[in-house]
């Protein structure tokens, strides 16, 4: 039983991680806590759903495409809204994503009705048995996808010129600007990448999860805690925080009681940040 629980927790954690990493990236670069991240995941889920329904692209195989779409969408949102707010005061930066979240969730209801939808065919369906442990294939695929995304981000930030520049921004904005780094352009790219992560998360979730306008809210909230737990600004921290949360949720839900499982996640967060005020792996200014 414990094995089954731990596996379930690990898979869940990886899925949370997929949602969290984009959030972390956006925060790290431009200091915006994206409360609309859940809504972006929801939009990506719909995109994936329409692609599978009308074009016949499998949600799993369509992941890169959805990620690309969301990247473009991210650039647009950045240019139209985020970039302008970035120059404003702290509280406006905090507030704008709340507004975006309310807007997109209700736009989804307006355009596509509040009905629940589900991708009917997907290559990742079914269950595999690993010894005594049941593993749901779509969750396994999503978890692997999450690790691939983590790897890609790691590679991008460490090995590419743009990535290094982005890192430079998250360490010291003004110094980076003085060194001739084009902040606006890189911010837009980073925001696009953050949304691309949300896109990948949405596409992989869409392969097995139901879709409705409010679907992203809880994912967004948990991801937020995961990112803070891992330490704002650290994508690895976000993944580790998310996995920790997945395991706490599953094990705690079983041994303490399902009614307390979200309380346990939040309690874990509070205890950890009280002990380590910058989260597990966070650094830089708050």
């Amino acid at each position: 039983m414990i094995l089954q629980l731990a596996t379930g927790g690990l898979l869940l954690g990886c899925i949370y991680g997929l949602v969290s990493m984009g959030l972390s990236l956006i925060y790290g670069v431009m200091g915006i806590v994206n409360f609309a991240h859940g809504a972006f995941v929801m939009l990506a889920m719909y995109a994936s759903y329409w692609l599978s329904l009308f074009v016949g692209i499998d949600p799993v195989l369509g992941t890169p495409l959805v990620a690309l779409l969301m990247f473009g969408f991210g650039i647009v949102v950045y240019r139209a809204i985020i970039g302008r707010v970035l120059r404003g005061p702290f509280l406006a930066r905090l507030l704008v994503t709340f507004g975006l979240s309310i807007f997109f969730i209700n736009m989804a209801q307006f355009l596509w009705s509040p009905d629940y939808r589900m991708v009917q065919k997907s290559i990742s369906r079914g269950i595999i048995m690993l010894g005594p442990v049941f593993i749901e294939l779509p969750k396994l695929v999503a978890s692997i996808g999450s690790l691939i995304v983590a790897g890609l981000i790691y590679w991008f930030l460490r090995k590419t010129k743009t990535g290094l520049a982005i890192q430079a921004i998250s360490i010291d904005r003004s110094a980076a600007a003085l060194m001739g780094i084009n902040l606006e352009r890189l911010n837009a790219i980073a925001f696009g990448l953050g949304l691309a992560c949300a896109g990948a998360a949405g596409a992989l979730l869409a392969s097995y999860y139901y879709i409705f306008p409010d679907v992203g809210t809880m994912f967004g909230l948990v991801a937020l805690v995961a990112v803070a737990l891992g330490g704002f600004g650290s994508t690895e921290g976000a993944l580790i925080g998310a996995i920790l949360i997945g395991i706490i949720e599953t094990l705690g839900g079983f041994y303490v009681g399902p009614e307390y499982k979200y309380a346990l996640i939040f309690l874990a967060y509070v205890l950890i940040v009280i002990a380590r005020p910058k989260g597990l792996m966070g650094w830089g200014a708050d």
């Binding site: 379930g8 839900g253 009614e259 979200y262």
Partner: peptide, 20 residues
């Protein structure tokens, strides 16, 4: 006798409890 929040994103632990 298992209560849960209806906004849950995952119910593995609830279902395993049920199964047990």
């Amino acid at each position: 006798d298992i209560p849960y929040t209806y906004r849950a994103t995952d119910v593995t632990s609830e279902v395993l409890k049920l199964k047990a």
